[in-house]
Design a protein around this nucleic acid. Structure first.
Length: 590
RNA sequence: GGGGCGGUAGUUCAGCGGCCUAGAAUGCCAGACUGUCGAUCUGGAUGUCGCGGGUUCAAAUCCCGUCCGCCCCGCCA
């Protein structure tokens, strides 16, 4: 090693020691004769001092020439700082290094942006120079936490007898899900590999292979549009187990998260996590990933509305729609103007408008006041804090109503952030998902999770008759309103698997071509099995309090899927195209 | 594919009812300074105002197009 110590470790116990430190020049404070500068590495910063009395001319000139971000090796003696100049903000603040020798290991240009806590630099520029941005303590901390978290997960899973196994990255395209990234095969002209959207099928095959307990920290690829919490390549902790039921996967996932979150983030995790059926989540939160930090529950108000003679609303009910709404406290934080804006928004979205009742002491304020029957008012009255709350409600098709209520809830939470319980990690299982949903655009049934998900045993006999009524053996795990993972008990029986394929509209020759290898495997002693996948990037984002998964990934991509650093994706040499039998003809693509 | 916001010194931003020979802060460069740690003080340099076209005597500013970035919807079995 070039260095004897790192830049974050020396303290009063080292007084008088001769040390060698390596790092980046962080901040030069030149007082003419006396000069200070900090030397920084991953571990911290240490002050170096050069005084004319103790420094010869050559060294003095060298120190004078230093610039920020130069990489240096400092030889010096650990000395106590004069008492009044101790810096309590840093762990090394009681000492400084009296410089004896200085080697410049590498110079640096002035940085394209400043390294600071409050870095407002445009993200594009920072991605172009990501290696500089990574010098920021925040990103370093994020990447380190991520590494430690993975270590904790491995530690737990290995102790539970799991076998970490790599599955192929060059594999077969399996449409039906997200768009695949494809890779041409030079040795098989005209054919393509696909990058895996997840190791799903391989992990099931590993169960057939008797591996019994598998995990992998797996890179997955999906060629879809990006978001703050979605990258085209991302990492998931992928787990699969044999001879299990839902409870086993749920239980081990809870213990895994407890082990890793408590171990790395020092935050208590209480298990088991609460659970909510999909139907409850949808009716009470209008979402399959409820944020239970917010105590705002949607209620069906049909009964109360029926008691009144508000025509518009009753018409909605008569036509099979719903009237739903929610009450929230601290209603005085919302002005009449805010409410009017929400009302206008609902009208813009094609609704009749937003119904509202403001509770003031025992009195109410509402545009519908004179239409509301006494009994209705009583029924609508909130249980908690009736004196200062607001009820919002609207009617229409349930899906539409839920979407609009969600949007309104968002606005309310922006205005009254106190309604979000601060500083908690609310894990939640969402269970009892439907097996299928109807895709109106394509006019067909599709799997809610994926087509390898097992139906609930009691629903198997009725699959043909009432496929949309079937429930699945799937479970999602949600953290503060974000889906961080999902899994299921899989189908391990060939004929059931084929039945599911047919139900989602795949012809026999199509599913045999695409999934024949899986179907074959199911006939050679496939054990009952199931598993889960946790989105690592997103989980880290939430744990670290970041707003984007890009802050948890060393080299993320932009919203257009490009990399400003390497300029990927780029064109390739003609020779490569030719070898892969690829012709590029951009104008023909829309 | 759609909606919103943004693009002006290296960086972050102001200027956007046309006169700007484009400013501020910070960074950078030079000088001063022996206890600083966001050092301080003095001085200096720096701009294809994203790109292309149009309107105008005159465009950073108005209009059209386009590119790039971010957020959201669709999409993400």
């Amino acid at each position: 090693m070039l260095r004897s110590h790192t830049c974050g470790i020396l303290n009063k116990n080292n007084l008088g020691e001769k040390v060698v430190l390596c790092g980046w020049v962080n901040s030069i404070r030149d007082h003419g004769g006396l000069t200070f500068f900090d030397i920084r590495d991953r571990y911290g910063i240490t002050q170096v001092v050069s005084s004319p009395e103790e420094t010869d001319n050559i060294l003095y000139e060298k120190v004078k020439a230093l610039r920020n971000e130069w990489v240096v090796m400092i030889e010096g003696e650990v000395a106590a700082r004069p008492e009044e100049t101790v810096n309590l903000k840093i762990p090394t603040g009681e000492i400084e290094i009296k410089i004896i020798n200085l080697s410049v290991l590498n110079k640096s240009n002035a940085l394209p942006f400043e390294l600071s806590e409050s870095d407002k630099t445009g993200e594009n520029l920072k991605l172009k120079y990501r290696y500089i941005d990574i010098r920021n303590a925040r990103l370093q901390n994020n990447l380190r936490s991520r590494a430690l978290f993975c270590h904790k997960m491995r530690e737990f899973l290995l102790s539970e007898n799991f076998i970490e196994t790599e599955t192929p990255v060059l594999t077969k395209s399996t449409p039906e899900g997200a768009r695949d990234f494809i890779v041409p095969s030079r040795l098989n002209p005209g054919k393509f590999y696909a990058l895996p959207q997840s190791p799903q099928l391989f992990k099931q095959l590993l169960m057939v292979g008797g591996l019994d307990r598998y995990f992998q920290i797996a890179k997955c690829f999906r060629d879809e549009d990006l978001r703050a919490d979605r990258q085209p390549e991302f990492t998931q902790l992928d787990v699969e187990m044999s001879f299990v039921e839902e409870e086993d996967i749920i239980g081990i996932t809870e213990r895994l998260l407890k082990h890793a979150v408590e171990g790395i983030f020092g935050r208590e995790v209480n298990i088991p996590f609460p659970r909510m059926a999909y139907s409850d989540a949808m009716s009470k939160y209008g979402s399959d990933k409820p944020d239970t930090r917010v105590d705002i529950i949607y209620k069906d108000l049909s009964d109360a509305i029926r008691l009144t003679d508000i025509k518009v609303l009753n018409n909605i009910l008569d036509r099979g729609g719903v009237i739903k709404g929610f009450t929230f406290p601290m209603g005085d934080k919302l002005s009449l103007k805010d409410i009017e804006n929400l009302d206008r928004y609902i009208k813009e979205e094609g609704g009749g408008g937003l119904g509202w009742i403001r509770y003031k002491g025992d009195d109410i304020q509402s545009p519908l006041k004179k239409f509301l029957a006494k009994e209705a008012v009583e029924m609508l009255k909130p249980e908690k804090e009736p004196g200062n709350s607001i009820l919002f409600f609207l009617g229409g098709k349930e899906k539409w109503v839920n979407e609009k209520l969600n949007r309104i809830k968002e606005v309310v939470l922006e205005k009254i952030p106190q309604l979000v319980k601060p500083g908690v990690f609310n894990f939640l299982w969402v269970t009892d998902f439907p097996l299928f949903e109807f895709n109106e655009e394509e006019n067909r049934i599709q799997a809610v999770h994926h087509p390898f998900t097992s139906p609930a045993a009691s629903d198997i006999p009725n699959l043909q008759k009432a496929p949309l009524a079937a429930r699945s053996r799937a479970y999602d795990i949600v953290l503060n309103g974000n889906e961080i993972g999902g899994g299921s008990i899989r189908i391990h029986n060939r004929s059931l698997q084929e039945e599911i394929f047919s139900l989602i509209g795949l012809k026999e020759e199509v599913y045999r071509e695409r999934f024949g290898f899986l179907l074959d495997a199911l006939e050679f002693g496939a054990p009952p099995h199931g598993g889960i996948a946790l989105g690592l990037d997103r989980l880290m984002m939430l744990m670290l309090g970041e707003n984007s998964i890009r802050e948890t990934i060393a080299f993320p991509k932009t919203q257009k899927g490009t990399c400003p650093l390497t300029l990927a994706p780029g064109e390739v040499e003609k020779r490569l195209l030719k070898e892969n039998r690829i012709q590029v003809d951009i104008p023909q693509i829309e």
